[in-house]
Write a protein that binds this DNA or RNA. Structure first.
Length: 1049
RNA sequence: GGGCCAAUAGCUCAGCCGGUUAGAGCGCAGUCCUGAUAAGACUGAGGUCCCUGGUUCGAGUCCAGGUUGGCCCA
């Protein structure tokens, strides 16, 4: 006996019950060790999830992929490491801890104590790692949760030290000075990666036009434009395009003294002038080179000794501004690059908090965000301000705290990419990228990237093991904790026992190998992508257990969402593996796009369209979520929401459940168990052989799909299989299960359906681990494993695949559909038998196929006879008409004769030719098939539907005999409904009472046996029903009948 | 400015190596079926497969150019 299965199921409750059961029976533990020592290995290395917040439904998408690929490989017997990773160092964490503590700047951290602050950071990581672990378990993600790695671990940090040491030995590490985007609040540089990922906003800034008076041409000024007036303090040059045309103009009455003035600007931007002007002269940009001008803030000490002049630059544009670009090398990126070319001084105005440093007069000590007014005032007083507007433009902001970025001249540490760039590209090309265009994206990034900036002036993160001597300037990189201890000259005792984080690590000092001075570590921490990029080494024992590392490196698979990762995680993995081993760190990379809401918009908590993971899990059920995730095209954005989840459940999970429920119900009635001997597949009914053939094809295609990391195709095939199983196999087989006696055919049907369900749940188990386990536990165990997830992946039996039978059955489905359409058109319901349905097929071969499956079609369409038509004209009136739209242009005034020829032709003959898509010869004209329009109207007595070369014709005349039979079926239908309404068990035997029109007697007289058998009526009694009967009145195809049913003892 | 990706029904998407007459789900309108069905089936309306050229016996599919959108780089 199988456990009875309700037809309605609360999937969410079922999932929770199974989580408890798995836990109780230790199934996950058994799964994790299932393949220990197996000869086959599959190495998956997890990309660490940032343990800074609860995980979202977008993480659940990625984790579903990770889980399903690993589950698939587990079922196939591959030994695996099931190690999840948490990412927990860096600015993300710091910012959240700062928020929790109500901090607003770096000095707050110093005041609070770096040691306590770092401990809080670690604690936050541990807290959210726990949250994410619980969420992942709810998702059905089976990992070795006690063995998750952390990027903040000592091993991870020290392995990065080793990497940096290797880089240093190869001469890649250098300290560079550069102008970079800087967040004044976080007090740290922001890499370009971070800006392009999420860091732009529309911001309104002043749009300032300023006069730079020419030294050698009194009364004449360059007109420049800027949206960052604070940078004017550090101006050293003006750039002009060598090839653009500039103009010298006289402007009426705009001078500082109210008189006329002479200005220079690019010809294409004359609209920037605020009054009438007269062009005095046109000048090529190159002619402006070397002109000296008075800077806007020459009075400041910081400007002392600077000689301002015009330089040339190809990047100057005419699309905004004045074509004369103010250049401040200490406060702008391109400006800095240009200054190196022209050997200009760089004046750096800001400290790390964005405040003006000494030498800037009244501005010194003010924040960059406070100086707009004093600067405007100063310019106005000096007669330099020409015009002040506002402009709203895209401007970079800090991706964590939304503070506007500034550009600042800083000293940072870099890994040079000059040599590595090519090697990384070669490694990249050896990897399988899914989708394929991933490789192109990675290579594109590698071509364009700058040197890797690895330092950050923060507190909680990798302690960069760089020791730079303050005395002689020499620097070294320490490669391990052992080396540090050996080199330590003080502070080791204070550090020992702590993680290699600030502030403890900085107790340790070493002696400079050049000059012997005591050297401290630089204050900087590392770029967090160092942390994540090292994991194919750090988590696989690279430093201490090379054999283990060789066993699991490189990873067979990694998988992450692609936005951002090509220049982040993938890049750092590739770089580190190339530098250390010059080989690929992973063999395949399965990447996927972005999760959006159902309308295609980004999910944001503030927008209110975000779905929390728990909410999704509890409302949709995670199986529905997982099926939806798995079935999507990973290269396209996924539109995710409750509507789609409902859809998925209704289309897949409920039909599957219904088939399962159907099976258990009837198996229990008949006492069928998997042990019941069943005939071999070859001796079973055609339907059985067909669905078994489909099943084995499914195994084959699903396996092939997953082998190429294509879950979407596997999902689609499974969807189709369930559709066929439910809507053809079970539908057509119902009678076989329903009949009273248990014969060989019935056992074969049970065995077939059981085989389909138990195999299907194995195939689906990696995708939807809950519902498959539920079904497996009830009907699939049978001496197999303790859990479906400990089962072997099915292997297709090619000998059971019968493609001819597949074709025949699909033809039967198609013709049935067409026949139903023809009945529908004639208004004859399927319960009413018809004499005949005739089909026109496309090929002769199909006639043979139809012969094979004719009984299925006949039964499905409730027809007494099925036949094949050679000629549609026997059942339909054909008319042929000229297609004037085509014939008109082609024949011009001869079209009348063509029409005449068509009208004389024999329609059925023309129809035959046109159907074959051949030219029609009509007298002297040869017509193309589409030049003739053929239409068919039903002949008396037939209802015809034609579609794609097939036709179905249903006889519409219902004889008295057929009418009687139709009534019998209607009567059965009504009695069945009454049984259900009365709450009888499916197997209850009953007595049926009836009274009514005399026509009812006729029906019963003719079909008593049939009615009794179908309704399980032992007796069919003509009388009013007794009191206790379930009774009601009906119209049976125009006849009145009163019916009553009673269960027999 | 450069690179990558996409464009198919009202919406969301399939469409494998180029092969007859382009499909599904949802939505809408209507009908039917059901003792597995909080289901299902059928019908109808709805398509310039973004445009223009090319290759080919044959192009939604391949090539070139363009348009629009997205992502990335500068």
């Amino acid at each position: 006996m199988f456990r009875p299965v309700p037809s309605k199921i609360d999937f969410v409750q079922m999932e929770k019950d199974l989580l408890a059961w798995w836990d109780e029976c230790g199934i996950v533990e058994k799964y994790l060790i299932r393949n220990d020592g197996s000869g086959k290995r599959f190495s998956f290395v997890d990309g660490p999830i940032t343990a800074n917040n609860p995980m979202g439904v977008h993480h659940a998408w990625g984790r579903t992929y990770k889980d399903l690929f690993q589950r698939y490989k587990t079922m196939q017997g591959f030994e695996q490491r099931y190690q999840n990773g948490f990412d927990g160092q860096g600015l993300w964490i710091e910012v959240n801890v700062e928020k929790d503590l109500g901090m607003t700047s770096k000095t707050d951290i110093e005041d609070y104590g770096v040691d306590k602050f770092v401990e809080l950071c670690k604690e936050r990581v541990r807290r959210f790692a726990d949250v994410q672990t619980k969420q992942s378990i709810r998702l059905g993600y089976w990992m070795d949760w006690d063995d998750s790695y952390h990027t903040m671990s000592d091993e991870n940090n020290y392995t990065i030290w080793h990497f940096l040491k290797v880089c240093h030995e190869k001469g890649y590490i250098y300290e560079g000075r550069d102008v970079m985007p800087w967040c004044p609040r976080c007090g740290t540089g922001i890499s370009h990666h971070e800006i392009v990922t999420e860091g732009y906003k529309d911001i309104t800034h002043p749009s300032v036009y300023v006069r730079f008076p020419l030294v050698d041409r009194p009364g004449e000024s360059l007109l420049i434009w800027t949206t960052t007036p604070w940078t004017l303090t550090s101006n050293v040059a003006v750039a002009a395009h060598p090839d653009l045309t500039y103009v010298k103009v006289k402007v009426k009455g705009t001078g500082p003294d109210g008189g006329d003035e002479t200005l220079y600007l690019v010809k294409g931007r004359l609209e920037a002038l605020k009054a009438d002007y007269e062009v005095i002269e046109e000048i090529k940009g190159s002619a402006l080179e070397g002109l000296r001008y008075h800077g806007p803030f020459d009075e400041l000490p910081a400007q002392e000794g600077v000689e301002h002049r015009v330089i040339l630059w190809d990047e100057v544009s005419e699309s905004d501004g004045t074509g004369l670009v103010h250049s401040a090398p200490g406060a702008g990126e391109e400006d800095y690059a240009l200054s190196k070319e022209y050997d200009l001084p760089a004046i750096a105005p800001l400290d790390e908090f964005g405040k003006f440093v000494d030498g800037f007069g009244e501005l010194t000590g003010l924040s960059v965000f406070e100086v707009a007014r004093p600067i405007h005032r100063s310019l106005r007083e000096k007669g330099r301000l020409y015009r002040l507007d506002q402009i709203t433009h895209r401007y970079p902001v800090c991706w964590r705290c939304d503070t506007e970025l500034v550009f600042r001249l800083v000293d940072e540490w870099f890994i040079s990419m000059d040599e590595l760039r090519h090697d990384i590209a070669e490694v990249t090309k050896k990897i399988t990228w899914i989708p394929e265009f991933g490789m192109g994206r990675e290579l594109d990034w590698l071509r364009n990237m700058d040197d890797w900036m690895i330092s950050k002036k923060r507190y909680y993160g990798l302690a960069l093991p760089i020791y730079k001597c303050a005395d002689c300037g020499h620097f070294e990189v320490i490669g391990s904790e052992v080396e540090l201890e050996e080199r330590a000259v003080e502070g080791w005792d204070k550090f020992e026992g702590h993680s290699p984080h600030r502030p403890w690590i900085d107790e340790v000092k070493i002696a400079c190998e050049e000059c012997g001075a005591t050297v401290s570590r630089i204050k900087d921490v590392g770029n967090p992508w160092l942390d994540a990029g090292i994991v194919t080494f750090s988590t696989l024992g690279y430093r201490n257990d090379k054999d283990y590392w060789r066993k699991w490196f490189p990873a067979d698979l990694i998988s992450e969402s692609f936005p951002g990762q090509f220049r982040n995680w993938f890049y750092s993995l590739l770089t580190m593996s190339t530098a250390l081993e010059n080989t690929e760190p992973f063999l395949a990379n399965f990447t996927y796009a972005t999760l959006l809401d159902e309308k295609g918009e980004e999910m944001h908590k503030s927008k209110g369209n975000a779905i929390e993971f728990e909410e999704g899990a509890d409302k949709m059920g995670v199986d529905a979520m997982r099926w939806m995730y798995s079935g999507t095209n990973p290269a396209s954005n996924l539109l995710f929401g409750f509507g789609r989840a409902d859809d998925t459940r209704r289309r897949m999970l409920i039909p599957l459940w219904n088939v399962y429920s159907f099976f258990t119900t009837y198996a229990n009635i008949d006492g069928y168990t998997p042990d019941t001997p069943a005939p071999p597949v070859g001796e079973r009914a055609e339907l059985d052989r067909w669905i078994i053939s489909e099943l084995n094809e499914l195994i084959r295609t699903a396996t092939a799909s997953l082998d190429r990391y294509d879950p979407q195709t596997a999902v689609r095939e499974m969807d189709e299989f369930v559709e066929r199983l439910s809507n053809w196999y079970v539908r057509r087989s119902r009678r076989r299960f329903w009949k009273s006696e248990v014969d060989t055919d019935k056992v074969a049907a049970f065995a077939t359906l059981h085989e389909c369900l138990t195999t299907l749940v194995k195939l689906m188990a990696p995708f939807v681990p809950f519902v498959t386990e539920e079904i497996y536990q009830n009907i699939g165990r049978n001496g197999g494993s303790e859990s479906v997830h400990l089962e072997d992946w099915p292997i297709a039996d090619e000998s059971l695949i019968d493609t001819r039978l597949d074709d025949a059955t699909r033809l039967a489905m198609r013709l049935s559909s067409l026949g139903r359409a023809a009945r529908s058109k004639a208004g004859i319901k399927v319960r009413q038998p018809v004499a005949k349905v005739a089909f026109k097929l496309r090929t002769d071969a199909e006639s043979d196929l139809l012969e094979q499956v004719a009984p299925q079609v006949r039964d499905e369409l409730n027809a007494k006879e099925i036949s094949v038509l050679d000629d549609v004209s026997t059942v339909a009136n054909l008319e042929i008409k000229p297609n004037f739209q085509l014939l008109g242009p082609k024949y011009g005034r001869d079209v009348g004769q063509v029409v005449g020829a068509i009208s004389k032709a024999e329609p059925s003959e023309v129809f035959r030719i046109v159907s074959a898509n051949q030219q029609v010869e009509l007298g002297e004209y040869t017509l193309e098939p589409d030049e003739i329009v053929v239409s068919a109207t039903d002949k008396e007595g037939f209802s015809v539907i034609a579609e794609q070369g097939y036709s179905a014709a249903v006889t519409t005349e219902i004889s008295a005999e057929l009418e009687l039979e139709g009534r019998a079926r209607e009567l059965v239908h009504q009695i069945q409904n009454m049984r259900r309404d009365a709450g009888f068990d499916i197997a209850d035997r009953i007595t049926t009472y009836y009274t009514g029109d005399s026509g009812i007697d006729e029906v019963i007289a003719a079909h008593e046996g049939y009615i009794r058998q179908e309704t399980l009526s032992d007796d069919l009694i003509k009388s009013a029903p007794p009191e206790e009967a379930h009774a009601s009145s009906h119209r049976i195809n125009g006849l009145d009948a009163a019916l009553g049913v009673v269960v027999n003892e």
